[in-house]
Simulated scan of single mutants.
Amino acid sequence: MHELIVSPFLDHHLILRPGNSAGLKVPEHRYVELRDAAESGSPVPDWLCRPALRQWGVELNGQSASTALLVRGRPPYEYGRASYEVNMACNWECPHCYLGLKEDAGMEWEDREKVLHILRDAGVLWLQITGGEPTIDRQFPAVYSLAYDLGMMIEVLTNGSRLHNPLLLRLLTERRPYRLTLSLYGATEESYDRLTQRRGAWKAFRRGVDAALDAGLPVELSVIVTRDNEHEIDAMYELARVFGVRTREYNNMTPTYFGSGETLSTQALTRGNQRGVFTGCDAGHTSLHVDPLGMASICKVARDKQIPLLAEGLAGLAKLGGIADKALLRQGGCSGCQLSEQCSTCMPLAQRYRQADAPLGSYCQHSPKEVTTP
């Protein structure tokens, strides 16, 4: 199993340690030197041995570059990041979930394997594995293992309910993710079980997070704030402090990705539209999303136009840039807004809000009288 990943990443060349978010940036000629050393089976160069020991505690002196290093080739595209939704099924039934009706659908292993190779060949170095709840998918271990072995740095988004499973825990400790992001839905059993609509959810989460922390996995918490648990905001952050982990807060409830609005009633009253000004993003150009059926889109939200990867393969991804450019243009009720440069909502998400007949205040920081339309 490789110790380090050596890879082009957009305009850079990186050396990364699986399971560790810190990396090294090297000039192109060093990348070429490591590639040639791996191809010839030469020892790892001295200039890498010293920083590898200092940065990650990895002893490479005397090791063959062909075994210690996984050197990735130059991709035809620059899709450095991707999210892969392995399923839409979940063992919780959270009313705020943007997936809406969570159907258990996915590809057979051969097709998943093909999709992962396409993502690798497209240049994807940072892969987010999500769902639904990815760890309940019967092929999650195989998907995770192959992505790791192909030289991807992996983040898993999970509710944590199955992390106490010995086989799953062994997989994640032997092939470490660089980040394991667990959703936190409350600070007490009562509120947690109520929001997830599953009795025993809190106990499953606590078993999972305790097992992950005991194993030394890189856990972070996504603090989910809704109308049901906003009274426990401080307690949730205190829990994260006790765990000793970093946090991110998710508090803007959005319509489902297909534009229904039943999720909007879960918006926390104490947390309004707190998004920063939208200044553009890399969706469709250097990042992409893949759904459980192998359909590629520019992101998780904008799925109106998708590329069937199994049919079109790597070449199909060339279309995403054009799709992204059109999707991000101001259109519909937003096309004439004179304050669009201050807007906090991207156009694909604004379209979902409009499809859901959402109140303007839920996605636009300006009152109706301040918004002009053609």
Score class of each variant (00 low, 15 high):
81 R>W: 04
82 A>C: 06
85 E>S: 13
85 E>N: 12
85 E>D: 14
91 N>F: 08
93 E>H: 15
93 E>K: 14
93 E>T: 13
95 P>S: 11
96 H>V: 12
98 Y>C: 13
99 L>W: 06
99 L>F: 04
101 L>M: 07
105 A>Y: 12
105 A>L: 14
105 A>Q: 14
106 G>H: 15
107 M>D: 09
109 W>P: 03
110 E>S: 14
112 R>P: 00
113 E>Q: 15
116 L>R: 01
122 A>I: 10
122 A>V: 09
122 A>G: 07
122 A>K: 08
125 L>G: 00
125 L>N: 00
126 W>D: 14
128 Q>M: 11
129 I>Y: 02
129 I>A: 06
130 T>N: 07
130 T>Y: 00
132 G>D: 10
133 E>T: 07
134 P>T: 02
135 T>S: 11
139 Q>M: 13
140 F>P: 03
143 V>E: 02
145 S>Q: 15
146 L>R: 09
146 L>F: 04
147 A>V: 03
147 A>E: 02
150 L>V: 10
150 L>S: 09
155 E>H: 01
155 E>T: 13
158 T>K: 00
159 N>Y: 00
159 N>D: 14
162 R>N: 12
162 R>G: 01
163 L>E: 04
163 L>Q: 02
164 H>I: 04
166 P>H: 10
169 L>R: 08
169 L>C: 04
170 R>C: 10
171 L>I: 12
172 L>K: 03
174 E>Y: 05
175 R>W: 06
176 R>V: 03
177 P>Y: 00
178 Y>W: 13
181 T>H: 09
181 T>L: 14
183 S>L: 10
185 Y>N: 12
185 Y>H: 15
186 G>E: 06
187 A>R: 03
188 T>E: 08
188 T>A: 09
189 E>N: 07
194 R>H: 13
194 R>L: 10
194 R>F: 08
196 T>L: 14
198 R>W: 08
199 R>H: 15
200 G>P: 06
